Amino acid sequence: MKKTLKLLALAAALSIAGAAAAIAETVKVGIAAEPYPPFTSPDANGNWEGWEIEFMKAVCAAAKLDCVVTPVAWDGIIPALNAKKIDMIVGSMSITEERLKTIDFSDKYYNTPTGIIGAKGEDIQPTPEGLAGKTLGVQVSTVHQAYATKHFAPAGVEIKEYQTQDEANQDLAAGRLDAVQADAIALGAFLESDQGKACCDYKGDVAQDVEVLGPGVGVGLRKGETELKDKINAAIKAIREDGTYEAFSKEYFDFDIYGG
């Protein structure tokens, strides 16, 4: 009888352990607290939506992770990751050599051009010469700030920094800026809004600088966490191969956002 009870107890313990193992690992996914359509923005109820939220859900499902969206102010998102307040960043963060000094990245999950927008009717070219003497708005702590500082500031372009992309767009619409630089897709979303249609148009892509702009956008991860990185890379590959990535992307874009 005692032997039977011991076997039953062991079986119960193994069952509990198995159930615990089946529970997905909970991961806090940091996104920028500031809206960045069409990638991330809150709906009327405060729930986050957008292409990057769909990407996050697909990757987490493929990696069998229980992911919790955790908004963090953009300029503090890397410190939050390294302080373990979040476990990874899914926030249109470009993979750059500078960032790789402090964090790690997954494989690329999208890559789009960097562009310039300005007031309609204004002859503005997306070059140092074409912006000389103008005021250019960029979001702080982004590759666009770094690019503008490197390429445009030496040519006499005044660089004005903003905490959010929306603030830069609003100042452009109000005539307080001559131009704004950002991801071409994010700028496209603004230009499709009523305000954007009324004020501004796309002036073109800036010249590529892989050292500053990076080869694309990746999931930000803490250095040394190779197990999570492997899971994320495998999940990105899986959703690309099984058609999931293409399916949800078609809801937002009429081109391949993955890029070359």
Rank of each mutant, 00 (worst) to 15 (best):
L81R: 08
P154H: 04
T149R: 08
Q145I: 04
Q163N: 12
K6W: 11
A20Y: 10
T127Y: 05
D87A: 07
T142C: 02
L5T: 08
L131Q: 06
D75P: 02
K2I: 14
H151C: 04
Q195N: 11
V140C: 06
I31G: 06
N169H: 02
A146V: 12
I53F: 03
V210H: 01
I77P: 08
D104L: 11
A132Y: 08
L131A: 08
L228Y: 02
D66F: 13
C200T: 08
K237D: 14
H144N: 15
A184S: 12
P128H: 09
I232V: 15
Y109M: 00
V180N: 04
G118M: 01
P37F: 14
A20K: 06
Y245I: 13
K160R: 13
Q125I: 13
A247H: 01
A61C: 05
K231T: 15
D104N: 12
E225I: 08
L131M: 13
D205V: 15
S249K: 06
G175M: 09
I77R: 07
D183L: 09
P126F: 01
S249D: 04
T135V: 05
G188I: 07
K229P: 01
L136D: 10
P71V: 02
Y110Q: 02
D201E: 10
C67V: 04
E122D: 07
I53V: 13
E167I: 06
A198D: 05
L172K: 06
E98K: 10
K229E: 10
A62D: 12
A62F: 10
A207E: 15
L10W: 07
D183N: 11
A61S: 11
K84V: 12
